[in-house]
Nucleic acid binder design. Structure first.
Lengths: 348, 348
DNA sequence: TTGTAAGCGTTATCAG
DNA sequence: CTGATAACGCTTACAA
């Protein structure tokens, strides 16, 4: 008797398939099927259109948790990105999110500190959400166990920004070549003593840029003293302290390559604080070409690296990994941008 | 006969409660209960410990989608944050994420363009994930329908960064007072013609800072010409074009207040390109005190605003809204940082 | 303390 | 094309 009459109590706020089914007078499975057909299509049946219309009216939003439980697909990508306040990282993150949205995925973001254990813990939490794929931006090169642990989760994973050795695919920019370009530029200008504010050792970005720069210098037959390479962090403060250490040397450099623009800004500040001037006393090369270095009173010579494309390409590769079970590592090209912060060394 | 003997086929990769139950030889419900007791506790029963141990061994990770489906709680917060590449936004986002993680929540991030419809669409997508709460950073002040539409989703929501009128609670910094401090500072130095690079009209941050600055000036009996207020975006380019428009005036300003540091960097670039110098010809006040403006050759006078606290406080309020059904709007204090970019107006 | 069973909202399979 | 039914993995009365 009392059959299919009640408007169906919408569980907890949101209407469900059942609610629509009751409203229309059909079975839930019919609604489910109908809703994944295109109502605009010319061969859409009358009832498909009707179901779409009513669903729309009722403000139906599918419950993706329920769907995911059934299909074993969450359409969710985990992103582990320390240092989000670095413009380059943020650009990459934004690009990942855009590409993911375009592909029908959503982003679960974790921004733990740039430490191995914190990142692994974030990954565990994301794994509990049954993410379909994982993007990790801050692999530590000196901790192969990090990669091991990540792979153990059994989730399609790609590294971005920093590469990983071996089994983990990565989409990066060509940091080695970028470093090479920087070194080559300074050598070509006539510099013979070149300091490197080299960033942290565990980051492949910093490491590769440093090695590339060294290679460019030594391949010209110029020696690179150990003391000319100072390891720091990626922040302004790192640039400041790194510059002071270099300028305190008995035989200080005439040029400094900082492996990222933020540190380069610190270098510039330190140089100024010592009463020296760029580029007259010290030539300076940064890295990344973040938007503001071109607007500084002395615009920086720097390396332009494609942060946003790196993000979208990484997501594309990850999707390939998810859907086709295979992905590739890619290294995106970089280029030298010459501006006012570099010139020939001062003749004493 | 063949009862509870097989090791239980772990559904699709990850072990489930059932798998553990079979391994231990108890029922799933027992496992479920045991796993949410603390095995370290002195009064933890032997079997609780055993179940924890085996779960650990098998690498069990709870399926939060399944749990959420049952409990109607996703332990997930949606964050809609356009302009993630702005350091201030990124700082806020990072703080939200940290606070959320600490509270056992995870972040679903969307970074749509800073447009009403794009943001609303992101919110719809997040709603499908049954997020427990929502944080929106870029309310458009001139679009009250935006707030209406957001509230319609029926999700506990708080605005951050930019306030909203009326029904939507917001955690912001005291932009009006910040603008006031900037204006007051310039007037106190003796400036009478002060230009404002005022950002977009739809952002309460930009708007309030501008209004505060105007109030500070007019309350000293100084008139603010319409032409001295130029609306732009928040980017370097906006600062450049805004500055040029101001400096092209028949009676150009002797000081410029840019409502954010990024635009201020653009202003500084434009001033330099016209052969003028800061602060000799033009005094400049920025806003936010982003890390690098203190390291510039001429460090900026600016307003320091607590971007990270804003994020964590917003999350705390949101949690109150979720758990207790009530939250408050808060306005965090700001302060003036005087550096080298401002001085008394040049005497002609 | 433990097992039983129902149910969260969805999709997939299978009959009609 | 539609309806019935089971299942995804988990939680939670309720009963033993």
């Amino acid at each position: 008797m009392s059959n299919e009459t009640e408007p169906a109590p919408a569980a907890h706020g949101q209407p469900t398939l059942k609610a629509i089914a009751d409203a229309v007078g059909v079975h839930v499975s019919t609604v489910s099927r109908a809703l994944k057909r295109d109502p605009e299509s010319p061969d859409a049946s009358k009832s498909v259109r009707r179901i779409h219309r009513i669903a729309e009216q009722m403000g139906y939003r599918p419950n993706l948790m329920a769907a995911g439980l059934r299909t074993n697909r969450s359409y969710t990508i985990g992103v582990v990105m320390p240092r989000l306040t670095d413009v380059v990282i943020a650009q990459t993150c934004e690009a990942i999110e855009e590409a993911a949205t375009a592909a029908g995925y959503q982003i679960l973001l974790a921004t733990p500190p740039d430490e191995v254990n914190a990142q692994l813990q974030s990954i565990q939490m994301l794994a509990s959400r049954r993410i379909d794929g994982l993007i990790v931006s801050s692999i530590h090169l000196d901790r192969p166990d990090m990669v091991e642990e990540i792979l153990r989760a059994g989730i399609p994973t790609i590294a971005v920004n920093r590469r990983a050795d071996g089994k983990l695919h990565a989409v990066t920019t060509d940091d080695y070549h970028g470093g090479y370009l920087a070194g080559e530029h300074l050598v070509n200008l006539g510099h013979r003593r070149i300091g490197i504010v080299a960033g942290p050792r565990h980051a492949s970005t910093a490491w590769d840029r440093t090695q590339g720069c060294i290679e460019a210098i030594t391949s010209r037959g110029i020696e690179v003293d150990e003391e000319l390479i100072v390891h720091t962090d990626f922040e302004v403060q790192g640039g400041i302290s790194g510059a002071h250490r270099l300028l305190n040397l008995a035989d200080p450099p005439t040029a400094i390559f900082a492996v990222n623009d933020t540190a380069a800004i610190g270098v510039a500040g330190a140089v100024r604080d010592r009463g020296l001037s760029i580029p007259r006393d010290i030539s300076l090369v940064g890295y990344n070409d973040i938007p503001l270095v071109s607007q500084l009173p002395v615009p920086f010579t720097t390396i332009s690296s494609p942060a946003a494309p790196m993000g979208s390409v990484a997501l594309q590769q990850l999707l390939r990994g998810i859907n086709e079970g295979e992905m590739s590592s890619l290294k995106l090209p970089v280029s030298l941008i010459v501006r006012a912060s570099t010139t020939v060394p001062r003749q004493n």
